[in-house]
Amino acid sequence: MEMNIYAYKCKKCGHVQYPYRTICRNCHKNEHNEFDIVPLPKSGKLLTYTNLYTLPPDFEVVTLGLGIVELEDGNKITGQLNIDKPKIGMKVKGKVEVVRRDEYNEYMGMIFYPA
């Protein structure tokens, strides 16, 4: 089954927001749960990125690529990068995979690869 990161579409004005907010950022009229849950697209272009070298202790890698991607629908998302030589503006494609593990839990999130 393909996994997705979900965004929240306001039932009143149709605005899609990610991450979740209790009140719609666009129309401010919405209340809790009046959202349709819609999957975020996975393709987009890389807006900016970094390689982080001082990692939180639960990461067992030397460096971690992180970036902000503008998705096809105009929404933006922060994700991990699995890209050798990232470049601002490059096309990327995401997959939902394990991004962090601690003792008992695995956290799923978007990892981007070159498109």
Binding site: Y18, T48, Y49, P56, I77, I88, V99
Partner: peptide, 23 residues
């Protein structure tokens, strides 16, 4: 959910900000 789980820290946000600013 949108940042912390990815390993995002303040230096990494600043790094991404800097790259865009430079560009």
């Amino acid at each position: 959910l949108a940042e912390y789980i990815y390993g995002v820290t303040l230096p990494s946000l600043a790094g991404m900000f800097t790259r865009l600013y430079m560009e």
